[in-house]
């Protein structure tokens, strides 16, 4: 155990990489979610088809498979990525596809009457989306987004398999060096757990803020079935 404690700075460096990966991928995923999610609610056939294709393609392939593909296959046709870039791209595209479904479902779940009131005020289609529908949809998006953020953070552990020195990778190194298998893995499990709880707190804070903005009573207790279903990294969406 003392070997593990001595090497704690090494694990901290690993967790810093894990955190960076999480943030970069989450930012990319969020941008893609909003873009393709909003496209998925438009009336035009072409934008909806583009959105559908993106979602089905990148939700269908596991992040690890995408990562291997970007990292090992694409260089063979001349596209070369650094491991970090391939990892962020794979995670961002993958979780962006889940997020796009959340965004699309949340916008569609805003009561139709709100859309109609926006038409009656003569807001343009873009203004309806930006000023009325999207702000209200955000409150519906946050709980499933919170789930997805935690899932994304957990999924970063796979980058160790493409030689990125994240927390899991450092743990494997340490295990090889010290043989303290149980202590090493127990330690990083706790570290991952702490990171997850911190992210959870951040999401709760954002949820409370949007609830206040919409004048809603903050939800108490445990998540509803729709939220649990929407956070499933399977095929779920809201509504």
């Amino acid at each position: 155990m003392s070997d593990v404690l001595d090497s704690f700075p090494l694990l901290l460096r690993g967790s810093w990489i894990t955190l960076q990966l999480t943030v970069y991928s989450a930012v990319l995923a969020l941008a893609l979610s909003l873009l393709f999610g909003v496209l998925g609610t438009t009336r035009g056939l072409a934008p909806r088809a583009v959105s559908r294709f993106y979602v089905e393609f990148f939700r269908g392939a596991p992040a690890l498979v995408l990562m291997f593909w970007f990292f090992y296959s694409l260089p063979l046709i001349g596209l070369r990525f650094t491991p970090m870039f391939a990892a962020v791209l794979a995670l961002g595209l993958n979780y962006g596809a889940y997020g796009a479904e959340v965004v699309r479902g949340s916008i569609n779940a805003v009561p139709k009457a709100q859309y109609e009131a926006a038409v009656a005020l003569n807001l343009t289609p873009a203004q309806r989306m930006r000023r009325v529908l999207l702000p209200q949809a955000v409150a519906l998006m946050l709980p499933p987004f919170g789930n997805l953020l935690i899932e994304l953070m957990k999924a970063t552990a796979v980058v160790s398999l493409v030689t990125i020195a994240d927390l899991m990778f450092r743990a494997q190194q340490l295990r090889a060096a010290t043989g303290e298998t149980a202590a090493v893995f127990a330690t990083i499990l706790v570290m991952y757990f702490v990171i997850a709880q911190l992210l959870q707190l951040l999401v709760r804070y954002l949820e409370r803020r949007t609830d206040r903005m919409l004048g809603r009573r903050p939800r108490k207790g445990q998540p509803e079935l729709r939220t649990v279903a929407a956070g499933a990294p399977g095929v779920g969406g809201v509504g």
């Binding site: 957990k154 398999l161 149980a182 893995f185 709880q197």
Partner: peptide, 17 residues
């Protein structure tokens, strides 16, 4: 705890520990 930590680490735990 199990839900919010990575599957890959848990697999390693089961297999190596």
């Amino acid at each position: 705890f199990i839900r919010s930590t990575p599957l890959l680490v848990q697999l390693a735990f089961v297999f190596f520990v």
